[in-house]
Design a protein around this nucleic acid. Structure first.
Lengths: 216, 216
DNA sequence: TGTACATCAGTGAACGCGCGTTCACTGATGTAC
DNA sequence: TGTACATCAGTGAACGCGCGTTCACTGATGTAC
């Protein structure tokens, strides 16, 4: 009981004004950028007044921070889920990873919104608007991807020796790990600019090919 | 004489107010986004008044259009230059291309500005701010990358058969071509977010590895 | 060589609108006794 | 079971500032004759 204090104890049906503000804000930020996203439009969408907004966020910068935190949490959970499922399909770390990448590509291909985006990319291209804390959160989110994939490649390499033509040192491993986030960020941009939702999944499958070519 | 009418005929030393506005605007847009970039700050940096700005651009949207055109032109010239030099080093289309990729990575590594960016990415993540024409220019710029690399892969594949494990059909060729722009866009984001200028060149070299693994 | 006119590249003042932020207040719900 | 008080989740009005845009005007340079 006591530890449930974070969320209102009653399991109310009303979908939490603050969360709805964040939801609407994220979509707006991805479409027009942070500074073109006005508080006015958010409260209009959610149906409260300005005072209500400033009850939830002390200023606009705190909205940015909250968006970033929400994004990081969501991101982590989605990746955990996908690669857990991949590993469940095969005990070998390489095969499980390859299956995870396939699942990832399929998930991305099924996204209802044809032109999604990544808050990290949006914030990075507007970083002058944010304080040190928000930028640090953003960097941390990307480092989380690096660590996740790097750990997996270490695991794989311990069992499956990479083909001799590559020097599989620390730098190479980090670059290969970073390639995942790189392709996601880049793929989202190409997909949106061209209005083609197949580009991002296609790039993930190329990544899968590349990893396969290195390890087996 | 007559055909020189586009540029002021005198080769003046003063660096062209309009061009300076675009230069300053591009840097500001890459740092904070388009709508947070004020006309006020641009004229302050260049040393003219607001009326002067509106002499060069009828409204802010025309500034966006001019930025996009300038970016496309610059982009094309840089790529032309690099891959022309790559081909000059080796007559074989694969070897020339691989050399071009190395040159490209080296060029990117040497950029004085450690946190550059790509206007296409910035505009894509704010596309709701722009009219159909600007968005079309942006898409066209990305398609130019696809066509450029796709043509090269067709050329290479005619001489060097890709390894049997890949089905080198039209979709695969396009995806492999798109991977270049994808890695550049993604690499710029990671590089900026982490403040690490080595990431982008590293990704280009991985791309080079991948292409090499496919064709030889 | 001089004069008339046109164009270029701006100046400088004014405008109204929308934005982020503040603040005093309020009705509904929860908790203590 | 009833009353007093505190907290939650807002309302509603007001604010000042900066932004994009307009417009009448101007001095320097170029061109025609």
């Amino acid at each position: 009981m006591a530890q449930a204090a974070r969320k209102p104890s009653k399991q109310s049906a009303k979908p939490d004004t603050r969360e709805r503000l964040l939801e609407v804000a994220e979509a707006a930020v991805l479409a027009k950028g942070f500074s073109a996203t006005s508080i006015e439009e958010l409260i209009a969408a959610v149906g409260i007044t300005k005072g209500g907004f400033f009850y939830h966020f002390k200023d606009k910068n705190e909205l940015a921070r909250a968006l970033m935190l929400r994004y990081l949490d969501h991101d982590r959970r989605v990746l955990d889920d996908i690669f857990t499922r991949g590993d469940a399909a095969d005990a070998d770390p390489l095969e499980g990873f390859l299956t995870g990448l396939t699942l990832f590509a399929e998930t991305l291909a099924k996204l209802k919104d044809a032109h999604p985006g990544c808050l990290a990319a949006s914030f990075t291209y507007q970083d002058q608007l944010f304080d040190r804390e928000v930028r640090a959160l953003n960097a941390e989110g990307i480092l989380a991807w690096r660590r996740r994939f790097r750990a997996r490649f270490d695991l794989i390499a311990a069992i499956h020796p990479p083909r001799e033509s590559v020097d599989f040192d620390a730098d190479y491993r980090d670059a290969l790990a970073d390639m995942a986030a790189t392709l996601v960020e880049g793929g989202l941009i190409l997909g949106r600019a061209l209005g083609d939702a197949t580009i991002l999944p296609g790039q993930i499958l190329l990544y899968r090919d590349f990893v396969k070519a290195i390890f087996r």
